[in-house]
Design a binder for these strands. Sequence first.
DNA 1: CACTGATGCGCG
DNA 2: AAAGCGCGCATCAGTG
Length: 552
Amino acid sequence: MFLLVRRLPDGDVELTTWSRPGPEHLPAVVASEVVRDADLVEAVRRRESGPEGASGPRWVWDDTPRWYPRLLEAGVRVARCVDLRLCHALLRAAVSTGGSELHGAPAGPWDVPQGADGPRDGLFDVLPESLPDPGAEFLRQRAAIEASPERARLELLTTAESTGALIAVEMRHRGVPWSADVHDHLLAQALGPRPPVGERPARMREDVDEVRGLLDAPDLNPDSPAELVRALNSAGVFVTSTSKWELQRHEHPVVEPLLRYKKRQRLLVANGWAWLDAWVRDGRFRPDYVPAGSVTGRWATSGGGALQLPRAVRAAVVADPGWKLVVADASQLEPRILTGLSGDRAMAAAGEGDLYEGIVASGAVATRAEAKVAMLGAMYGATQGESGRLVPRLARRFPQAMALVEEAARTGEQGGVVRTLLGRTSPSPADAARGDLPPEMPRAEVGRDARSWGRFTRNFVVQGTAAEWALCWMGALRQSLHRRWGERGDDAPHLTFFLHDEVVVHAPADAADEVAVLVVEAAAAAGRMLFGDAPVRFPLTVAVVDDYSQAK
DNA sequence: CACTGATGCGCG
DNA sequence: AAAGCGCGCATCAGTG
């Protein structure tokens, strides 16, 4: 059963119940009611906690972050939803919805990004009206799914995407347990004690003095690349940029302190005291996740940089007293996704254990490091250097896997679109030319940047399907955690962090070992959801730890 | 002054 | 100054 919520212009909320759709018929409204905004939470709670054993409704709403935070704050968890905005983007672009009204529709209000870039409710007393006519949008989406030859896959994709939206809001709501003390201590260790605003920390001042002395440039601003290049050239260090990679190639005594300074500066500006003040409150870091924020369907973040959390500060992620962190990392996820996509039996055999060791055992390359570089090169489209040299050796042993990425690259080079296993479709070069894509995407006037666009589509199928696997993994885990401990409420183990191919569960110590088992089972379940019984494994590295830096 | 693009580096 | 994909963020430097 679907239950659609919609905010009316007067601020009240309309709830409409829809019949279950099927291959032959679209859902239809069977009941409708209007509640005051103040009564919404109770209305949802009542329906969500239905009769024992019955699955709750599937809530249908325009945009999960508009509705769900308030519910969570009131202690109401929602089991399932349809995030119309996210599903709209998927279905509109998907090749497998061809012929539907939604397919290729002109951009409209449903295509406006929400989140930090779009309308927000946080600053206003009155919540904004819903996106226009969510009921009609829901019907368009159901029609597109039901008529698709890939109906089952789109159903799984839209469900997984919507569950991801719930998880993103739930993780922000719970927050990542964060020790400001540990973080401060760690910064003091690396940079010196916290300085007054506007001043450099002591250790960095020493670095700057040293660099200025060695370059004989007493007024040098080390943060200005242009100034720095000039000063380096004057001192006989002939560089054209100030990147670490180029600096490392020079012998001059200034290189070491300069790189040390840059490393510290990076830590200070990205995750220093200012970050701590801005993002950590009451022992919790609450990142703003943006599900499907990248073209491939991976999540992004807006503010806080949670997906770039440097290893250097992970020790500040500390489980609450009496709790543990269960950290699980999918080993060699993307090559395994490629294995499943291509059905390459030789690669499946190599992936029985450590995939890279398996590639070495196959005789394709000599060392694990070579196997890794070659594999990445194959998925990214490397043509030069060590990686480019090694790729052909993989192609001989794993022809099916290589053929799949080669085919994706050729399609892109010719201006075509590719899709993930579940049907997320890549933007066309025309989309990119129209400018509604991130500017750093290669501008593919086909021909000129065709190769570059081919590398994008080559990687899209693998990275995008890996993102789908990760959504299924998290979705399955969320469900099993809730089934096992749901009645414990806030004391139940819960997802607290997600990083593309890695999840962290915050769990009471007595539950941690059992959580570790459920995480592994969820990975296997995700594999079956995508690849059925195909011979591809998704092993994890799981660690039960007190702080995040202790994992791996 | 605000905005934009380039640079550099953190993550997967 | 990366080769070889996808991101976010701070800062600088140039422009309007």
